[in-house]
């Protein structure tokens, strides 16, 4: 894909808090929403990172860190793997996606817009009054299957959707993206136990292991390790990948359904704020919008990467 498709933002910098429609400055990518070759996903992932930042900047509110850490995971799911149809969001045979870490809507909405669930320009309404794009995920947005936002609830929803699929003899799969800090919630482990008990091999959880939660590093707030062993002890097929290596992420996602009789969890080791030097590994960017200067710097950095 030609590089110029990805750099229409010059006019945006500094204007993120304005209420003016940004249709004229919103990036256009024009990719088909299904890409079979993971090698094509690099530029797309970079585009999505910019879109995440612009979306948050337009709202002057939102969660950049955990959105940026999940870019490759979301890209692999929506552009390579999941069976879904943006023209028919309620297609009964679609694969389901649950954003259990419901605050990371900037990456979810960016991906959904890019797929064509709603116009890209609508991203500029994120968190604003009368928008379908709520701060935390809600089913009023086309393509959003589960309302979330209170941590720990998405995996249970996934168990229900997976049970329904089995009852209906459908072969759709259910993907649930969890935060690592979210694993502090007891309900995650209630759900994990029940998914193994009901042998839900159509359920795949992905933990975005970016090692930072709201206040601080996860190790400081609540020790999670040995995290993989915990999932293994709950009788899940447990895989670990570099969550920014799309081929590794895809490989694990594709391997998951081969595992019969038990659910799979992929612990994706990631960097919070990935792609923007001053956001990387910085707890400050869990839940705040960049300033105009920071946005400009971030967009510039993202232009330079290949």
């Amino acid at each position: 894909m030609p590089e110029e498709h990805f750099s229409p933002m010059a006019s945006v910098s500094g204007g993120q808090a304005s209420a003016a429609p940004v249709a004229d400055v919103w990036p256009t990518l024009g990719v088909p929403f299904l890409l079979r070759n993971p090698r094509d996903l690099g530029p797309l992932a970079r585009h999505l990172r910019r879109q995440v930042l612009l979306t948050i900047a337009a709202a002057n509110s939102g969660h950049p860190g955990g959105s940026l850490s999940a870019v490759e995971i979301m890209t692999a799911l929506y552009f390579c793997l999941m069976r879904h149809d943006p023209r028919n969001p309620h297609w009964p045979d679609r694969d389901r996606f649950v954003l259990s870490k419901g605050h990371c809507t900037p990456i979810l909405y960016s991906v959904l817009a890019e797929c064509g669930y709603f116009p890209r320009e609508e991203l500029a309404t994120f968190r604003r009054i009368n928008s379908r794009l709520q701060g935390h995920a809600h089913i009023m947005a086309p393509g959003v299957d589960a309302s979330t936002g209170s941590l720990g609830q998405g995996l249970s929803f996934g168990v229900g959707a997976a049970l329904a699929g089995r009852l209906e003899r459908k072969n759709y799969r259910v993907y649930v993206l969890l935060g690592d800090g979210e694993c502090d919630e007891g309900q995650v482990w209630e759900a994990a136990m029940s998914a193994a008990h009901y042998r839900l091999d159509n359920l795949i959880a992905i933990v975005d292991r970016n090692r930072i939660q709201n206040d601080r590093f996860t190790d400081e707030v609540m020790e999670l390790e040995p995290l993989a062993d915990k999932w293994r002890a709950f009788r899940w097929n447990t895989l670990e990948v570099d969550g920014h290596n799309i081929e590794q992420v895809l490989g694990a996602l594709k391997a998951a359904p081969q595992e019969k009789g038990r659910p799979t969890v992929i612990i994706a080791h990631t960097v919070k704020g990935k792609g923007v030097s001053f956001m990387e590994n910085n707890p400050d960017f869990h839940g705040r919008a960049p300033t105009p200067t920071e946005l400009e710097r971030a967009l510039k950095e993202l232009e330079g990467v290949g």
Partner: peptide
């Protein structure tokens, strides 16, 4: 939560 997932399906 499971009930919600079942209802949505």
């Amino acid at each position: 939560g499971v009930a919600a997932g079942l209802a949505m399906s």
